[in-house]
Design a protein around this nucleic acid. Structure first.
Ligand SMILES: [Mn+2]
Ligand SMILES: [Mn+2]
Ligand SMILES: [Mn+2]
Ligand SMILES: [Mn+2]
Lengths: 216, 216
DNA sequence: TAATAAATTTAGACTTGTCTAAAAAATTAT
DNA sequence: ATAATTTTTTAGACAAGTCTAAATTTATTA
């Protein structure tokens, strides 16, 4: 169907599109750890296949068939991550690299049965939504906890930074998906926050706070 | 580590070695659906990596590190097949192609946890033994049912032909792994056999009988 | 054993995906 | 508005894996 490289490009373009509707060559190169010249080559191939809209120097957007493929890869990635955590008991910071490989397993029937086997989970271990077989998912509105004021509460529902370091840090602080938090103090000086989670107070930097997402 | 192509070559060489200790270029080409010239190119690469013993025109054998890799791929293939049948309820004739892709997922930790999750199965859905993490497995002595005489019994434990057509045929006849069979008659004329399986009589050709394996 | 056939290797080419270096276009700063 | 900088594309090269056609080696047959 599509090559592994093509799938990775489409997925990256999709993720980058969430921030900037038009995605640049350099952004893709940075995301895929490759060089701009290589990206240009691939963009031509993807444009020939009508998976992206591409005009020289103008950046790219996904076509609807390109987006459909990207969402299917993301569906597979997130379902496998869920499997690894819920069935094989990996930690949430250990599963991403394995899922990067598993997302390219091609069988649609396999992924639909995996979905059923796990009872149709709606979110992956990092709180990201899992598209259904038609590519649909409900994007719940997440906000960084920096949006909260003192005494306001929220439920941890996602992360903006998926790095191992950040995920491990959060786990050690008990700041995991589903926990209810309350802001008890915001330090004027550096905008760091003191949170209350299950009766304990936790002090986190503004940097961390920006990457921890909640629903109110 | 090793490329997908290298892994497929090593696996093929391993399987072919079970019949002829020395494996020829043409045998590999036939097994991998490729051309002899391509095989020669790859054999040089594998020999450089000391995964095979290769001398021009003389055929190849696996080195012990080549065999170790091959057995690890086979372990992954068979564990994923078991997963697909036991957990996702695919039929035994549907899983091979999916496992051909999944066997290349690299994480050792993943496959060890999958093994544990399924409670360390010893055989895949086709009766083939699953090597443990060190590559060890017990090869039970299987015989084609043509080795049986009238009134002798055996337990179906494997197949020599893994084709979809044969697997589907066997399933339709209830001739599945674990069933106890008794030979009630051998037809002189064409050496076809009449078997008794769970009180029903089944007539199978010599061709089929040669590919159906039992333990006595 | 010499001729013929079969198996294997070599030579040269092609595709995919990548790279570096240089050229061209677009953006930003003066 | 021109110059300097950044971004993007082009040109040419390379590695992996494959192919066809031709050459070479090995095996078979007469
Ligand atoms: Mn991930
Ligand atoms: Mn995730
Ligand atoms: Mn198989
Ligand atoms: Mn099998």
């Amino acid at each position: 169907m599509n090559t592994l490289a093509e799938e990775n490009y489409l997925k990256s373009i999709y993720h980058l599109s969430l921030n900037d509707s038009n995605v640049s060559t350099n952004q893709i190169a940075a995301a895929l750890n490759t060089k701009a010249a290589s990206v240009t080559d691939m963009l031509k191939k993807l444009a020939d296949k009508e998976l992206i809209n591409y005009e020289k120097y103008q950046g790219v957007t996904l076509t609807s068939s390109g987006e459909k493929i990207a969402l299917h890869i993301i569906r597979k990635h997130r379902l496998w991550e869920y499997f690894l955590v819920e069935k094989l008991h990996f930690k949430w910071d250990e599963v991403h690299d394995m899922a990067e490989e598993m997302e390219h397993i091609s069988s649609v029937e396999l992924i639909d049965r995996l979905d059923k086997f796990m009872d149709y989970p709606k979110h992956d271990p990092h709180g990201d939504p899992i598209p259904d077989r038609d590519g649909n998912f409900k994007k719940h509105e997440l906000q960084p906890i920096t949006a909260l004021r003192v005494n306001e509460t929220g439920i941890i529902s996602g992360v903006r930074d998926h790095s191992t370091a950040f995920l491990q840090y959060l786990e050690k602080q008990q700041l995991t998906i589903g926990k209810k938090i309350k802001v008890t103090e915001i330090i004027e000086y550096d905008h760091s926050m003191i949170l209350e989670v299950e009766q304990t107070k936790i002090h986190i930097s503004r940097e961390a706070a920006k990457n921890l997402l909640i629903v109110i």
